[in-house]
Write a protein that binds this DNA or RNA. Structure first.
Lengths: 115, 115
DNA sequence: CCAACCTTACCACAGTTATGTCAAGGTGTC
DNA sequence: GACACCTTGACATAACTGTGGTAAGGTTGG
């Protein structure tokens, strides 16, 4: 079968076995278990683990941040609340043009430097 | 004029002045400044502050989490990367029905409890 | 049946977050 | 000009995150 133990998965993704257990505890990547309780990682989960490492390294994103996005995705009430809050923000919304952002950044400067 | 000093804003939102300064430092709520450098909160920002407190209290959301959503909102590349990662997740996507979620939660139970 | 894996449960530790307090100095109002 | 506010900066700290160990014990494959 094509599933991997925790240390095999670790070897193939660059994480330590310790961290794979930690990731499971946070709910981010939760492998199935064998009859005896051993973690069994599937290829799809290896891809998830690699992607997670890339996100962290490439964008300076915390595990926490990703966990929150996952949470957002499955909790519709929370999602609605956050979107409502964002609507009150001066920050340009989803469809905003690059120009909107530049202008916004300039105003932010004005605000910060105002004297 | 209808703007508020840091302690007036604090009194009306339930935050401490210290926390309002902290929130500014994180970029979440950044008030304008008077000529002498005093923070001037506008009514809209009071609403933002109240909403932030409600999110934290009502949903157990960290400031970090909100800051990340704001970041997601303005960084299209990051947003694309995160969405790509989410696509590989076993978690049902945006348009999923309630039934999908129930089934997913059950499988998660199976995975966690498998023995 | 034994070596090499796996499990959980702890202890440890540096770094960050969220929060308070205090000091030294500028501002504004009566 | 005194008093109540504002500013920044520093120090303090409890809780949490991310990460590493180690120990005591179960599983498995040659």
């Amino acid at each position: 079968m094509s599933t991997y133990t925790v240390s095999q998965a670790a070897a193939q993704t660059g994480w330590s076995p310790r961290m794979l257990r930690y990731l499971e505890s946070t709910g981010l990547v939760v492998p199935a278990r064998s009859a005896a309780g051993y973690r069994r990682y599937e290829p799809q989960e290896l891809a998830l683990l690699r992607g997670l490492a890339e996100l962290r390294q490439g964008f300076d994103v915390e595990l926490d941040d990703i966990a929150f996005v996952v949470r957002l995705r499955r909790d519709a009430r929370l999602r609605a609340a956050v979107e409502h809050w964002l609507a009150g923000t001066a920050v340009p919304a989803e469809g905003a043009s690059e120009a909107d952002w530049i202008e916004w950044e300039q105003r932010k400067h004005e605000r910060l430097l105002a004297a």
